[in-house]
Computed example of a mutant assay.
Amino acid sequence: MTATPTRTPVDRAARVVTEVCAPGVLVIVILLAVGWYAAPGLIGLGWGILAALFCGIVPYGLLIVGARLGWWTDHHVGDRKQRLVPLSIILGCVIAGIATLLVLDAPGAMLALVAAMLVTLVVTLTITVAARWKVSVHTAVAGGTAVLLMLTYGSFTAVTVPVVALVGWSRVRLGDHTPAQTIVGAVLGATVAGFVFRLLN
């Protein structure tokens, strides 16, 4: 689908939701949240920051730089045909993150979380390339984030679930995805990330 211009107040609101809840942002949030839980005080936060460097900060930065250099349409890589390279780069960053955490003997929860991200990314990349279908990475990460928060901190964090629907709405409103692509993304992220994290943690 071709993204529509951001003109109306509703469109602008959708754009804000899309940017605030971008995959790179939510990945950093969940890594810091689980890091804080996995180890006491600043030590846990340090693990979260280290993992976020590999899984969120560097990949998101590369997407922004790539968009500015014209390598892909925008930092969300709206064109499905352009997604193979950036997703592969992100995959490499996450693998490097896991290797680093293993070498440094990171807490099990951190390793389980990054592994969950890796498997979700592989599944998303497979669907994008093999099925030639642009599943929503935004809702996949949002769905995974909501489930991982619940598995880590308990059921009270279920208040974040409506945010997943809001992210899906924003992607459809902006013309970047169909409703089906956002729903499949959310279900995929929630089930795959949740299963892997629960299995390994």
Rank of each mutant, 00 (worst) to 15 (best):
T73Q: 07
T182A: 10
E19G: 06
V20K: 01
A180F: 04
D105P: 05
T139N: 14
C55R: 12
V172N: 06
F156H: 11
I183Q: 04
L69I: 02
L113D: 02
I49H: 15
L149W: 01
A146C: 06
E19K: 13
A142W: 08
L63V: 02
V114E: 12
H138V: 07
G24C: 12
A180T: 12
I28V: 13
F195E: 10
Y60G: 07
V85L: 12
A158P: 00
P107L: 11
A112D: 09
W133D: 09
I49F: 15
A142V: 03
V17G: 13
V119F: 00
G194M: 05
C55V: 13
T120K: 05
G185P: 00
T73L: 04
A158G: 03
G35W: 04
T6R: 11
L69D: 01
W47R: 06
P107V: 04
C93G: 06
L121G: 09
K81H: 12
Y153K: 02
V77T: 02
A112E: 04
I57S: 00
D79Y: 02
L62P: 10
F54C: 14
V17Q: 08
T120G: 12
M150E: 07
T4C: 10
D11F: 11
L50M: 14
V164M: 09
V114F: 14
S88V: 07
V167G: 10
L53M: 10
A109T: 03
A131C: 10
M117H: 06
I57K: 01
I57D: 01
W133Q: 05
A67T: 01
V25F: 14
G24P: 14
A38C: 03
F54L: 11
L151F: 00
V103C: 15
L166D: 09
G144K: 11
T139C: 14
T6W: 08
T182C: 15
G48F: 08
I127C: 07
L118K: 06
V34W: 06
G143L: 03
I64Y: 04
L62E: 01
V184N: 00
T145I: 11
T160F: 06
L111P: 05
L174K: 09
T73S: 13
V16Y: 12
T157D: 00
V184H: 01
G92F: 00
L53P: 08
G97E: 06
V20A: 04
P162E: 08
V16F: 13
A130V: 12
L121C: 04
T124Y: 09
A116Y: 03
Y37C: 04
T160I: 07
L45H: 15
D74Q: 00
T152F: 00
A142I: 05
Q82F: 01
A14D: 06
L45Q: 15
V187N: 05
W72R: 00
A142R: 04
L101F: 12
C93S: 08
R12G: 11
L199W: 09
V163K: 10
V58W: 03
H177Y: 07
T160N: 04
L174R: 13
F197G: 01
G24D: 11
